[in-house]
Simulated assay, not measured.
Amino acid sequence: MKEFAYRIEDMTKGYYVVVTFEADNETVKEFDRLMRINSNIVRYMIIKQDEN
């Protein structure tokens, strides 16, 4: 468990997780929807990575 750089919704500690995956646009939209409705997830960010 890591200490957050700043307080988020009265929380000061949590886990940072990085996930890399390949998916089509509809799957990414569903993943985004699930992240928004899960109360255990404080913050998240989805980034499109350029192909090398």
Rank of each mutant, 00 (worst) to 15 (best):
I8T: 08
R7T: 15
D24M: 05
M35W: 03
G14E: 02
M11P: 00
E51T: 13
I41E: 11
E22A: 09
D50Y: 10
V28N: 07
F4K: 03
V28D: 06
N40T: 01
F21I: 00
Y16L: 15
K48S: 10
M11Q: 12
D24A: 07
V18R: 07
V18C: 10
T12S: 10
S39A: 04
N38I: 00
V28R: 10
Y15Q: 02
V18W: 01
V17Q: 10
Y44C: 06
M35H: 05
V28P: 02
T27M: 07
G14R: 02
V42A: 10
E22G: 02
R7N: 12
N25M: 10
S39F: 00
D32Y: 02
D24S: 08
Y6F: 15
K48Q: 15
Q49G: 00
I8N: 04
E30M: 02
M1W: 03
E3W: 02
R36Q: 12
R7K: 09
M35G: 00
A23Q: 01
N52H: 01
I46P: 04
M1E: 07
F31L: 14
Q49T: 12
M35F: 13
I37R: 10
K48D: 10
D24Q: 09
F21K: 05
D50I: 13
I41W: 14
A5C: 13
Y15K: 01
M35Q: 06
Q49E: 13
A5D: 11
K48R: 15
V42S: 05
K48E: 08
S39V: 10
E22Q: 08
K13C: 12
S39K: 13
R43G: 08
R7I: 06
E22S: 09
N25S: 12
R33W: 00
N52E: 10
G14N: 02
K48A: 08
K48I: 05
E51Q: 06
E26N: 14
F21R: 05
M35A: 07
R36S: 04
I46F: 05
D50T: 04
T12W: 04
K29G: 02
E9A: 12
V17S: 14
F21T: 15
L34Q: 13
V19D: 03
D50G: 09
T27Q: 14
N40A: 11
M45C: 11
V42D: 03
E30A: 04
M45W: 00
D24G: 09
Y6V: 11
N25L: 07
V17C: 13
D32A: 02
V28L: 09
D50E: 15
R36H: 14
E9D: 14
M11Y: 08
D50N: 12
K2R: 11
F31K: 07
K2S: 08
E26P: 01
N38P: 05
N40Y: 11
E30H: 03
T12L: 11
I47D: 03
V18T: 07
E9S: 13
Y44P: 12
D32H: 09
K2C: 06
I41M: 08
E22M: 02
N52C: 00
D32V: 01
I47C: 08
I47M: 11
F21Q: 07
I46D: 03
I47W: 03
I41Q: 07
T12F: 13
S39D: 14
D50C: 05
K48Y: 11
V28E: 04
V17M: 12
F21V: 06
